[in-house]
Nucleic acid binder design. Structure first.
Lengths: 186, 186
DNA sequence: CAGGTCATGTAATAAGTTACATGATTAA
DNA sequence: TTAATCATGTAACTTATTACATGACCTG
């Protein structure tokens, strides 16, 4: 299970389940997501396994926060995972499966499909660009003077943008080719 | 559940669970995968729901084959899925999560990590290129004279190649930037 | 006669989603 | 007073993986 390692990686500083969920939202959501209903029980399990330690901290608002930190064992588990090299798993892209079968959709709707797809990814791209801008303005060292702990996250942001650009380009290409085919078939 | 729809899409012609698994292997494996242990029970369930019909056909070798075909209801379910527009779900790319946390790995191993990543994706790219070459040689209409039923699959193949190329490019960029940083820090 | 392919399936486990329950505080 | 945010959790369900069981036939 990789979520375990993602949590270990994020626990560079102590954090509660709720905090971790926020961090997903604003730093890794373009390549990982997790719900609280998955995070809470997993954190508890990891503590039982000795990878984490927790203590309760009173909160100004709401119930007390359970704040977790990595143990030595947790740190080792993370190091192991990283040193085993890239963990590649088969992706499941339902939208691409839809494209695969798109001949079974009415011609007019096919074009709409690609237009919608383009809009969706354009939106994703804009979101990442916004993240980048914010960062860029806040940190004069951006991007190559960053410290390691920020440099590698920046690389993932960069790939996210490159990938979305590629997909948008591909959408345009698809739309052009579909249009060309329609003219030919008359 | 999208596997259901992927199976419906693939059942353009009747096929057994075993057949379907093969088709995953050679046509959609870069964006979808499924094990027989998932396929068999799902096909049975879909038949109970009235989306599929099956009959048993003797095989030259091994046990009789259970061959499935779509019912009208199955076809409608597929059409519905397609006409609802692109189904985007959050991806989970563990290897990219590893990059995100790569500062927690020894510097020498970081470079190895990217080299390995590059090799892996280079391999994936080569596999798709081989698929394309085979197809290109077999069909003189490739790629824009293809019929719809082959044209859309071709688009997914094309995106697969573009994506892998992007990732390889990004790996090179990362390696260069890491090297540049090492020089700066001395 | 060992290992691969053909072919179907079950069982156990892991991973992820959706819905629900609780209850305080704060801002519109 | 209504909705949002803070904060933790459980329960039910769906989706996916790994391991196992069965047995014929085909190739080296």
């Amino acid at each position: 299970m990789s979520l375990q390692f993602v949590l270990l990686g994020m626990l560079r500083e102590p954090a509660s389940g709720y905090d971790l969920k926020q961090r997903f939202q604003d730093s890794v959501r373009h390549f990982w997501a997790a719900e609280l209903a998955q995070i809470y029980p997993l954190l508890a399990r990891m503590e039982k396994q000795g990878l984490l330690r927790s203590h309760s901290v009173a909160s100004e608002q709401g119930p007390p926060r359970r704040v977790y930190q990595r143990t030595r064992a947790g740190l080792e588990a993370l190091a192991d995972w990283l040193s085993q090299g890239p963990e590649l798993r088969t992706e499941r892209l339902s939208w691409l499966a839809q494209v695969f079968f798109l001949d079974q959709l009415k011609p007019a709707q096919r074009i709409q499909f690609f237009q919608q797809l383009r809009r969706d990814f354009q939106q994703h791209l804009r979101e990442l660009e916004a993240v980048q801008s914010g960062w860029q303005e806040a940190d004069p060292n951006y991007p190559d003077g960053l410290e390691d702990a920020d440099f590698f996250p920046q690389l993932t942001l960069r790939l996210g943008m490159m990938k979305y650009q590629t997909i948008i380009q591909w959408c345009d290409e698809c739309l052009a080719r579909i249009a060309a085919r329609q003219n030919q078939h008359r």
